[in-house]
Amino acid sequence: MSSAVDPATAAVVKKPRKARGAMRRLVSDPLGALGLGLIVVTVLAALAAGLLPHDPVKLNPMVRFAAPGAEHWLGTDNLGRDLFTRMLYGARIALVISIGATVASLLVGLLFGVLAGFGPRWLDSILLLLMDAMKSVPTVMLALVLITWTGPSLWAVVLVVVLVNGPTYARIVRTQVLALRNAEFIEAERALGAGFLRVASLHVVPNIIGPLLILAAMDIPIVVGIEAGLSFLGLGVRPPTPSWGTILFDGFSYIRDSIWMVVAGGLPIVITALGFTFLGEALRDTFDPKLAKR
């Protein structure tokens, strides 16, 4: 009897090469490289914030509306705080909220999506109704109601984002689970005696997480926008904490005195949003099987 020893031993070598190839394709895509570069700049900025000599919140009325110079690279704001320092600290807030809130939304989406997709019909119907109800409430309305109730805070912003994005992800997860739940390999796992948790975590989630991550990357700039917008409206991060939204809001009030506050608040929002959007699109082009070129 011949055992099947075929020339495909090459396939063993093929796998790591493929992963590296995907990374290379991502970076060789000019959009992907640019996006990645912008995100790296933002992350470095957030990390470097603590190295700066100025305090981001301490008032210094002697140097209000200073023009950019050697001491204050981007000048100072209406309360004499160094704008460059505040801009970099703003990056911390923006990244923590946008990434934290997106990860939380993903987890919520996975949990409810898997429950709806795998659970009994009645559970699916209830969860579906909940998701659709959540999605029918406008974001700003939701934020207003919630924040009137809890008071403005970083956590309130995260909660708003989870309530807005979570149901969207849950719906996508549910559809994918429904497509997978009767797949033959899921049946095969059940035939071996695998329980629900094992099937869901080991065999379902890994097979649906890819497109979800791409979607999440493209949602991050929206979350940055939500955070800035809520802070601008006074519903987000509370004033002394440097958020791009509050910087922008203050700059808006004092635009006749100095334009630099608007720059320090607005520019990083644009840079981060573009960075994540470009990266998300490049990721999709690289990993979406329908678009991937062989």
Partner: peptide, 12 residues
């Protein structure tokens, strides 16, 4: 199972 390839979890 009948379909050998698709009865194996694809990521493992």
């Amino acid at each position: 199972f009948q379909d050998a390839v698709s009865s194996l979890s694809p990521r493992l």
